Computed example of a mutant assay.
Amino acid sequence: MLSGVATGAYAVGIEPIRQPRVKRYQLVPTNWPAGLKLRLVVLADIHACTPWMSPQRIGEICQQANALGGDMILLLGDFLSGMRLRTGHVEPEDWARELARLSAPLGVHAVLGNHDWLDDPGAMAAGRGPTLVHGALASINVPVYDNRASRFEKDGQPFWLAGLADQIGPWEGLDDLPATMAQISDEAPVILMAHEPDVFPTVPERVSLTLSGHTHGGQIRLFGYSPVVPSRFRNRYVYGHIVENDRSLIVSGGLGTSVLPVRFGSPPEIVVVELG
């Protein structure tokens, strides 16, 4: 009995609020151009709420992320709480003020997650955006990639950053992968941000790397298995670096929690991806 109480106390009171670990991946995707080296720092699933993800903690995470020296910082959605348990509310302008600390040579870029719609009563009632999160990110000049692609260069080498609108909320989802890919006008490599990893089976080989969050690594992970995963593919895309048919997907375990403030065997993390 005591061991069960101790485990529960750790899962609620310690692991969800510990300093994020840094999870590093190094890969050279298929057809990645020689000489293009790119470091991506990825933050997913902040889920701002008190006491677990206060503005102060978000600010500390931003400082930690900046110190990792990314060429780009990518935010993979779910900024709003998503908690069924009553917690302290954090206004979007308060967490946005902390995210404004983020800085990288090639900028900070974002997609929205399902809770950024589902937990926004005004946007859901109106049946359209912009959402509270759109407004908060616009106020700190962070672009949101709603089915959008933009071309960048690093050391004279071009690449594309693309992002999908959310696949779940609202209604049938707002993502449009074909329209997003149609914006890419040359053969430079493509990095795709997609909050939910479920789109991965339909991502073309043209995309060098897909980056997702949403699953939180299951939030509870026992011996490499998560009993509850918010994905129709269950543990197939729950966490980590997945390679299928020479296509790469990295799923972050994320930073916050949703539904319940519990993490066990899936600590908060910042992802660093070294490409090339």
Score class of each variant (00 low, 15 high):
Leu38Cys: 07
Leu275Lys: 11
Gly35Pro: 09
Thr215Glu: 11
Pro20His: 07
Lys23Glu: 15
Asp176Leu: 08
Pro230Trp: 00
Ala149Pro: 04
Pro204Tyr: 08
Pro51Gln: 09
Gln19Gly: 11
Gln56Gly: 12
Ile17Trp: 01
Pro16Phe: 05
Val243His: 00
Val41Pro: 00
Arg263Asn: 11
His216Gly: 11
Pro268Gln: 08
Glu98Pro: 05
Thr7Lys: 09
Leu36Tyr: 05
Gly265Ala: 10
Gly173His: 04
Phe233Tyr: 15
Gly35Ser: 10
Leu38Tyr: 02
Leu76Met: 15
Val12Asn: 03
Val90Leu: 10
Arg221Pro: 03
Arg247Val: 04
Asp176Arg: 05
Gly213Met: 05
Glu269Ser: 01
Leu27Gln: 10
Glu274Thr: 09
Glu93Ala: 13
Asp166Pro: 06
Arg236Asn: 07
Ile250Pro: 00
Val229Lys: 03
Phe79Val: 09
Glu205Tyr: 04
Pro268Trp: 01
Ala34Thr: 15
Pro230Gly: 10
Gln183Phe: 02
Arg39Phe: 01
Ala179Phe: 04
Ala44Leu: 05
Gly59Ile: 05
Trp32Asp: 10
Val229Glu: 05
Glu153Arg: 11
Arg97His: 14
Leu75His: 05
Phe159Asn: 07
Val90His: 00
Ser258Trp: 00
Arg39Tyr: 04
Ser212Pro: 05
Ala67Met: 15
Gly254Glu: 10
Val203His: 02
Arg128Asp: 06
Val42Gln: 13
Arg97Trp: 05
Phe79His: 01
Ser208Glu: 03
Val5His: 08
Ile14Tyr: 06
Leu209Val: 13
Glu187Asn: 15
Gln19Glu: 15
Arg247Thr: 08
Gly4Met: 14
Tyr225Gly: 09
Arg236His: 12
Tyr10Val: 08
Gln64Ser: 13
